[in-house]
Simulated scan of single mutants.
Amino acid sequence: MSVDLDRTRPVWRQIAAVIVGRIEDGTYPPATKVPSVVELSSEFGVAASTAQKVLAHLKAEGLVRTEVGLGTFVADRSNS
């Protein structure tokens, strides 16, 4: 799935918005794994540091949680 990014706005914010959209539309349901840094870098053609910033932002927003050695998963927000 290819996404055209607007290079006049912060790319990491655009990618984060795409991932949020996928969470909201059920592409990534609660408790499922989201793409890794490497997968995001490859899909969007960005540096690993940009992909890390995306995942850090989503975690700070409470949309995803990380499990060391396992990956990053969609947070279950049904109890909030």
Score class of each variant (00 low, 15 high):
M1A: 12
M1C: 12
S2M: 15
S2T: 13
S2V: 11
V3M: 10
V3Y: 08
D6R: 05
D6S: 05
R7S: 12
R7T: 13
T8R: 06
T8I: 11
R9I: 12
R9T: 10
R9V: 15
V11K: 02
W12L: 13
W12H: 12
Q14I: 13
I15V: 09
A17K: 07
V18K: 00
V18Y: 07
V18I: 14
V18A: 02
I19V: 11
V20G: 00
G21S: 01
G21D: 04
G21E: 05
E24T: 05
E24W: 11
P30Y: 11
P30R: 09
P30N: 10
A31M: 11
T32A: 06
T32C: 09
T32G: 03
K33C: 08
K33F: 00
K33L: 02
V34I: 10
V34K: 02
V34R: 01
V34M: 07
V37D: 01
V38P: 04
V38Q: 10
L40R: 02
S41M: 07
S42T: 15
F44G: 00
A47W: 12
A47R: 14
A47G: 06
A48Y: 11
A48S: 12
S49Q: 07
T50A: 04
T50P: 12
T50E: 06
A51C: 13
V54R: 06
L55T: 04
A56S: 08
A56C: 02
A56I: 04
A56Y: 01
H57K: 14
H57W: 07
H57A: 08
L58G: 01
K59A: 02
K59N: 01
K59P: 03
A60G: 15
V64L: 03
T66A: 11
G69W: 00
F73T: 10
F73N: 14
A75Q: 10
D76G: 09
R77A: 08
S78V: 15
S80L: 13
